[in-house]
Structure formats: C-alpha cells, structure tokens
Design a protein around this nucleic acid. Sequence first.
DNA 1: AAAATTACGTTATAATATAACATCAATATT
DNA 2: AATATTGATGTTATATTATAACGTAATTTT
Lengths: 137, 137
Amino acid sequence: MVNAMIKNQISLSKNQKIVLDYIQKIKKPVKAYSILSGVKKSGINAPPQVYRALDKLIEKGKIHKIESQNSFIACNIGDCATPHAVAFSICNQCEIVTEINDQKLFKYLSDFKDKSGVNFKGYNLEFFGVCDSCKAI
Amino acid sequence: MVNAMIKNQISLSKNQKIVLDYIQKIKKPVKAYSILSGVKKSGINAPPQVYRALDKLIEKGKIHKIESQNSFIACNIGDCATPHAVAFSICNQCEIVTEINDQKLFKYLSDFKDKSGVNFKGYNLEFFGVCDSCKAI
DNA sequence: AAAATTACGTTATAATATAACATCAATATT
DNA sequence: AATATTGATGTTATATTATAACGTAATTTT
Ligand SMILES: [Zn+2]
Ligand SMILES: [Zn+2]
Ligand SMILES: [Zn+2]
Ligand SMILES: [Zn+2]
C-alpha cells in the first residue's frame, strides 16, 4: 500500500507518543525512571512500558541513548536517518548534552576503515569537555 | 621524590592487580559481576571492591569501559596516555571489541571543534559493524 | 611520630533493565 | 467475513549494574 511508506515514517503508538512528548519537553538528557515518574499521570505504570517505548523511539530515530549516562535525549536533527550513527558533546560539569550535526565529521566516520580494512555501519561518539556556559563561570 | 614519577606509572594496589590480571587474562570485554565471580578465589568478596579497582584502573589507563555494553576490557595500546580519548570497534554479531589505535583518527577527533568553536578534551567512540570472522560465516 | 591520603572489607540498598505471561488491537491472508 | 499474524499493552516479578555508608588498615607526606 502506498500509504504504508508515509505512515511508517511518522506513526507512533500511544505509549511511544507519551514518552516522546515527555522527552522532547525536557530539553536535557533524561533517565528512564525519571520518564516513568513523569508519565505516570498519563497512565504508564511500569518500567517495561517505558523501556519498550524507548527502544522503538530509538529505532525510529526520534531519540538517542547517551551511553555514558544511561540517559535519553530527543533527536535534535529530526528523525536521524541513521539512528546508530550519532555524535554528541557532553559537558563534564553540567552534563548538558548536545547532538552534533556536522556532515564532515559524519563522512569522516562513515568512511573510516580499521587496519584490516573493515568499514563500519554505525558509530556512537561522545565528546567530553566543558561547555561555553560552564567556562564562563 | 624522583621515584614517585616512576612508581606512579606502574603502582597498583593488591585488588587492582587482581582485577587487572583477570581482565587481561580474558581477551574479551568482561562485566563487573563476571569479574567478581572470577576473583572470588583471590579474596575479593563484594561489588564495591571490584568497582573501586575498575575506577582506578580506568584512571590509570590500564582498562577501558565499553559504555554500550557495560563491560570492561584491558587497554590494548599500553597505558593509554589519555584514558578518556578512546575508540573501539564492536562486532554486532559476536560482540567482540577491538581497541582502535589510529593516530590520524585520534588527531582528527582531538582537533575537532563544534559549531561554536569548542574543542573537547576527551571522547569515547564506538564503531559498530560485523567483524571479519563473522563476515566469513 | 603525627597527619593526611589511599585502600580495604562489609552490609545494605539504589538505579538500571529485562523475563515472562496474559490480553488487546491493528493488519494481512485466506 | 473469518482467520492468522504481528505489534502493542498491562502487570508482576526478577535480573543486572552500581553506589552509599561506615569502620578499619595500610601507605605516604609532613
Ligand atoms: Zn539525531
Ligand atoms: Zn556545562
Ligand atoms: Zn587503551
Ligand atoms: Zn564478530
């Protein structure tokens, strides 16, 4: 069906919408159990409901997991075409996370080959430093 | 003291040695509670003893944490000068992890500046793909 | 030697994540 | 339309990962 392709790009289930709305509202990375607290009033009661929604939202490129923090953040690029090829900067002081959208960096990493010539489908890059706001203090 | 500099490079406490020996023996990434099981016979009884050793070994560049797996692996480069500037390849099928030692990649990442010109002290990069052995199957 | 720092041992608990199972809803297949 | 398949939900329980807190011991610095 023609509509299937269009629909697949955007269709989110009820719980997925609830969780995504919450994550997008919070501008910072947020942890699974904070999400659970935040969406209890919307009828989500238990961890599996949150984790299932998170998994699907990651697959669909709507959010990303910040591995070094076990936290989740809304995609800042808009439905990342490649949800497993992402880069972030993380402030060591305030722990704010910013998704990096740099085509040159993406190309460099996508083209990278290791010493045996193996090229990789995806990558997760987390930069650590001190953000401008924290530097100013 | 002059010896301090020399000593600091290598000195590990008793528990740190036990944990490092175990991780180096296992060639694959290993999880904290597997380490705990593996070193119980050496007199380490409880999680905090393992996690403390892990923290110090990371600081000292002897091991690295694979964030996407919550696992730990011995440094393959030899006391990484910058324990928080590391890159790995991870096979999606067998989950084997290889530390990448590529000066060009390191320079590229160390020199990287984001859009506001901020440069970062460290980074953690995990590439995902299929390793040669798994491709052969 | 005294003080300060680092490491150790132990108990308990916090925080993160998944297994398992029953049910419901939407979508394809016949 | 009935049936099969798939995806999503609700729920309980449990597994996995990690740290808090406290007292003691060893080591290093002054
Ligand atoms: Zn994104
Ligand atoms: Zn900051
Ligand atoms: Zn290393
Ligand atoms: Zn493999």
